[in-house]
Design a protein around this nucleic acid. Structure first.
Length: 300
DNA sequence: TGAAGTGCTGCATCCGTTCG
DNA sequence: CGAACGGATGCAGCACTTCA
């Protein structure tokens, strides 16, 4: 099926509004015959006479009357779509962003991000969703507008930007006995641990690093994210390994916890933001990406 | 690259209706 | 009843596309 000429939609709108071929022709800077032929094409396309002779003028058919509002709305919408983009006005920007972010970002910088968004664009809504292990192309299908995560594949055509790197440190309550002497691998392994794993695994890179030194630790609690790990420390002798940015954020929030360097060779984490190319030049999305990145840089 | 085809336009004109 | 008005249509010109 051939795609209809959408100029006919605009002509139909003018014809229905004017109720006259001659008046519509004047409005569209056409001759009356040209307009008459346009009306003929509309009739052929729609399969309805649209305007029929009534005395000296024309009168709309029931089909034309039924189409009138819809045609008007379609023309208005197409005008909006084709209008040059107006400069971004953050004070009136009404838009929601779906952000899929790991808890390293939400925990360490989420509060600062929200404060900044509220101050600059109070009508913007942020909807955070947790990382999961689904391989759905959430950026491509538009479910997620911005992906904040440590290194992971997002698809070959996605845009990526490195925001910050973070080390894994040990965190324990402020007056934990681990702080009473030199922190060695053996002393770290001597306390019970909280393991952070989205998949619920009790062992990970720390266990591998300890095993290389012929050591092992006891994991007594498994939690799905770093924030939960830090909050669960409470007054226990448990230790949790978290990114140093999160440990610092917990202290800023007044949690009575203290971080220490883990005497183990652990990889640093690189946190990036990723987005679909369709948003590359979108002014509002560019603004969001800029403040997401700025907040990391200011906070480190 | 030029010929042929296609689609759109304006001019001229016809036809039907209204109005004085 | 004739002038004026408005829509429809035949025709020619023009621009653009397709194809050999």
């Amino acid at each position: 099926m051939q795609f209809p000429d959408l100029n006919l939609l605009y002509a139909l709108d003018v014809l229905l509004e004017e109720g006259s071929v001659a008046a519509a022709a004047r409005r569209m800077n056409l001759s009356a015959p040209a307009m008459s032929r346009t009306l003929a094409r509309i009739r052929e396309t729609v399969g309805d006479p649209i305007l029929v002779k009534a005395g000296r003028g024309l009168t709309p058919t029931p089909r034309a009357l039924a189409l009138r509002e819809e045609v008007r709305a379609a023309v208005e919408q197409s005008r909006r779509l084709l209008r040059p983009e107006t400069p971004l006005d953050l004070s009136t920007l009404e838009r929601g962003f779906n952000v899929r972010a790991n808890d390293i970002y939400t925990g360490a910088f989420g509060q600062a991000l929200i404060e900044r968004v509220q101050a600059e664009a109070p009508r913007v809504r942020l909807r955070f969703s947790p990382e999961n292990d689904s391989t759905e192309p959430v950026l491509r299908d538009g479910t997620v507008d911005l992906f904040i995560s440590s290194l992971r594949p997002l698809g070959p055509d996605m845009h990526l930007q490195t925001m910050f790197t973070t080390r894994i440190v040990g965190v324990a309550r402020e007056d934990h006995p681990i702080f009473s002497g030199e922190i060695t691998p053996a002393r770290v392994a001597g306390f019970d641990h909280i393991s952070v794993s989205r998949l619920g695994k009790a062992s990970g890179p720390i266990d591998a690093a300890l095993a290389a030194l012929a050591l092992s630790r006891r994991v007594s609690v498994v939690v799905p994210n770093f924030l939960a790990g830090i909050f669960m420390l409470g007054g226990t002798d448990l230790i949790v390994a978290t990114p140093d940015h999160m440990a610092a954020a917990a202290r800023r929030q007044g949690l009575r916890v203290r971080a220490f360097d883990l005497p183990l060779p652990l990889e640093t984490l690189v946190v990036m933001q990723g987005w679909h190319p369709r948003y590359q030049n979108d002014a509002a999305h560019r603004w969001l990406r800029r403040i997401v990145r700025d907040i990391c840089r200011q906070g480190t």
